[in-house]
């Protein structure tokens, strides 16, 4: 260590003052996570693109769909669910999932930007734990997703939606939204590493966003949709996310693609969705972790 008690600034400077050991400086794992969590939160607030894309678009959907299709869709929704559920109530869980999807795209964009402006390499040269670096970044992103879902739920309630399970339901919907986002966070990061190009990542992730949303139970009950859409919807993670959040919203089992009767009522709609999403999240996460560790270690023999 350099002599800590030396009083001239020249003596204090660096570990190069003649000691046998060089000065080492680094953090704890939690410290590393926190540093990165903070950085990505600041960047999210600074970057209007992030907020506009991932929040404004779902809000527009929420308002337009309820106002334009509300009357027409309401009948189909009532027919399918059997109750007098307003289209607002029906739609809000889907918009919550849309927010998670749209926000997850920005995760990959953030990574591409880091690669392009050199911060990716700069961070690799620091002694920060690499797992902590990506944990901190992801934590910042899901934190933002949870807040944005909260905003959508609040707005939905203002427009007339009802959350039958109350505050616990709100927290549950946020939780499912965050869980749902993980596979798409992993997907957009994988895309980012593979393309290393901002436009490609945005296009790739955005192109997928609408087919995923429309070919699911998000906007209308599956029973009212053509057969091929129903088939696709069964394989679509959005369906599982939407049905799980919708079950919480309505406080009844509205899971359309898996039938279980392990519990009474609502949980039969929530638990299978959560399980499927966790599985998808883990699979995509594993791919992203593999690609990331390959990208952060060198391409040498």
């Amino acid at each position: 260590m350099s002599t800590p008690d030396a009083d001239g600034s020249a003596e204090e400077y660096a570990g190069a003052t003649g000691g046998e050991e060089v000065t080492r400086s680094g953090n704890s794992f939690a410290g590393d996570v926190w540093v990165n969590f903070k950085r990505w939160n600041v960047k999210a607030v600074r970057n209007p693109f992030v907020l506009v894309v991932s929040l404004a678009q779902p809000i527009i959907f929420l308002v337009l769909f309820t106002q334009v299709f509300g009357n027409v869709a309401g009948g189909a929704v009532e027919g399918a669910t059997g109750g007098d559920i307003s289209y607002e109530t029906y739609l809000v869980p889907a918009i919550a999932i849309q927010v998670a999807l749209a926000a997850a795209v920005t995760s990959g964009i953030g990574l591409v930007n880091d690669i392009e402006n050199g911060m990716f390499e700069k961070v690799l040269v620091t002694p920060m734990n690499r797992t902590a670096v990506f944990l901190g970044k992801t934590a910042a992103e899901v934190f933002r997703i949870a807040i944005q879902i909260g905003i959508i739920l609040g707005l939905g309630v203002l427009l007339g939606a009802e959350i039958a399970t109350g505050l616990p339901g709100v927290i549950g919907i946020m939780g499912i939204g965050v869980l749902f986002s993980l596979w798409f966070v992993a997907f957009s990061n994988s895309l980012a590493i593979l393309t290393r190009d901002q436009e490609s990542t945005i296009i790739g992730a955005n192109l997928l966003q609408f087919p995923l949303l429309f070919l699911s139970s998000a906007f209308l009950p599956l029973a009212t949709l053509p057969g091929w859409i129903q088939t696709f919807a069964r394989l679509n993670p959005v369906t599982y996310g939407v049905d799980a959040t919708r079950s919480l919203m309505l406080d009844e089992n509205v899971m359309t693609v898996i039938e279980v009767s392990w519990f009474d009522g609502t949980l039969n709609g929530v638990v299978p969705g959560v399980a499927v999403l966790a599985g998808i999240g883990l699979s995509f996460g594993a791919i992203a972790v593999y690609l990331l560790s390959r990208a952060s270690s060198s391409d040498v023999k």
């Binding site: 540093v35 970057n47 402006n117 620091t126």
Partner: peptide, 27 residues
């Protein structure tokens, strides 16, 4: 390490960039 290509976070201020480096290295 100062890479050949300028490596800073353009969305952070000058102060925040340096602060991030301080934190990353456990100052």
């Amino acid at each position: 390490y100062m890479a050949q290509e300028t490596s800073i976070d353009p969305e952070l201020t000058a102060e925040e960039n340096i602060r991030f480096a301080c934190e990353a290295y456990g100052v």
